[in-house]
Design a binder for these strands. Structure first.
Lengths: 232, 232
DNA sequence: TTCCCAACTTCACAGAGCGTTCACATTCGG
DNA sequence: CCGAATGTGAACGCTCTGTGAAGTTGGGAA
């Protein structure tokens, strides 16, 4: 139907995208605007909103993922979101599965990028991103930053909420304190691992005695949220 | 095909899939069944339905696309659907964008297939396939640090888990106590060899009388996990 | 600006869990 | 039947985690 997207403005990151990417987008007839940050993306957003985003993780992976996260946490989450990564970065994808819709392993054929973009756009943004994370009676509302358990709201602080969200998004999986610090607190964080312990303790307290065991301690390893699907 | 949860059976086309694909699926712990046609896919469908489909278009593109179309036209459309195509076939995708959810350009890294499957399954609400080590009814979940035997969880301590994991990753191979100490406990470890004995004993106890013989004693040498193919 | 309070981090200590070792019993090979 | 290798139970001691509290930071109000 569409010979070329007309009213579809894509956000591209970083501000000086790889020349191959720029050429590919141009040749395919896409309209796009490169931005340096999520704030800039919000500032330069067209009236109809972004039609999607393409993020190259080559130069600055940290910044790129932060950018993805920011676009997804917005009021109107930008969709679809295509990331370009190197093969070595593929391991990063697993824990960030909620931050993108599709990915390309660079270097890749320009046609592949174009095909994936077309596919994503044709599906109208593709997959629906859940705006809540839930486990049993626990519900995290990603839009309002509120948590409830059995319907009654929990009064969580920011870090408590982020930690619980991260754990609840990966139920059953064990994380070391170091992993939690880097994924929840941030990469450049240089702090003691006991910080995690204390936050876990407060979370357990707020979850209540009945649900404190939502967060399990795995001795000598770290923490796990929820039970493995096998221990049913 | 490895053991695992029973509700994640993938349909694979064609009936004799590329060996690389088969190996990738097995190593990732997926359960799958190769089928020769859409009719056969319907006939062999598990009670809970297919968790998804992987279609290799290498040999017979027409048949492969017909297969995809049939799965999509069914009462319960099979989702998600991942197709493997060569670069030359990329042009086919545009006209068939409604017949698949994601694609891989072959030849590609096995990790990419696995990553895309994970992503698709996670989106579809299906369970993400964990990394597992399994032997008979014993399953070690490397993500959750949990072990089960015949579906019932084993309550292993950290060292017990590590020892069992190492042994189970090398079934049939005999290890001296010294080797086990250096590989499981660490190279710089300087302790008595009887430590291994005690841990083996506890492992056998927790495996239960029925499966205690998973760990065999090789007198004057060490221990072996699983049976030698020469044993009577 | 200055103060204040909430949130976050760090610290210290106690308790529990777990790994290691030892002593003794048992089995195996010759 | 003997010696060596292994199985077994118990006790010791260390490491890790839970926990209360002190210390630090940052943002908002007066």
């Amino acid at each position: 139907m569409s010979t070329g997207p007309t009213h579809d403005m894509l956000a591209v990151y970083p501000e000086s995208p790889p020349i191959d990417l720029a050429r590919t987008l141009d040749l395919a007839g896409h309209r796009w605007k490169a931005v340096a940050s999520a704030a800039e993306a919000a500032g330069h957003e067209p009236a109809q909103g972004w039609a999607g985003a393409v993020v190259a993780c080559d130069g600055d992976p940290e910044g790129a993922w932060a950018f993805c996260g920011a676009l997804r946490r917005r009021e109107n989450a930008v969709q679809p979101l295509l990331v370009l990564i190197s093969g070595a970065q593929m391991a990063d994808l697993e824990l960030r599965h909620d931050l993108f819709d599709d990915f390309c392993i660079t270097p890749c054929h320009p046609v592949e990028i174009e095909t994936r973009l077309r596919h994503l756009l044709a599906r109208g943004g593709g997959n629906v991103r859940p705006d809540v994370v839930s486990y049993n009676s626990l519900v995290l509302n990603l839009e309002t930053y509120q948590a409830t358990i059995g319907g009654t709201p929990l009064d969580l602080t920011y870090m408590e909420y982020e930690l619980l969200k991260f754990l609840a998004q990966n139920p059953g999986k064990v994380f070391t304190r170091e992993t939690l610090l880097s994924r929840v607190w941030g990469y450049e964080y240089y702090g003691g691992a006991r910080t995690v312990d204390v936050h876990v303790r407060r979370l357990r307290a707020k979850l209540g005695e009945e649900h404190a065991n939502f967060i399990e301690t795995v001795r000598s390893v770290g923490y796990r949220f929820g039970q493995s699907r096998w221990s049913a």
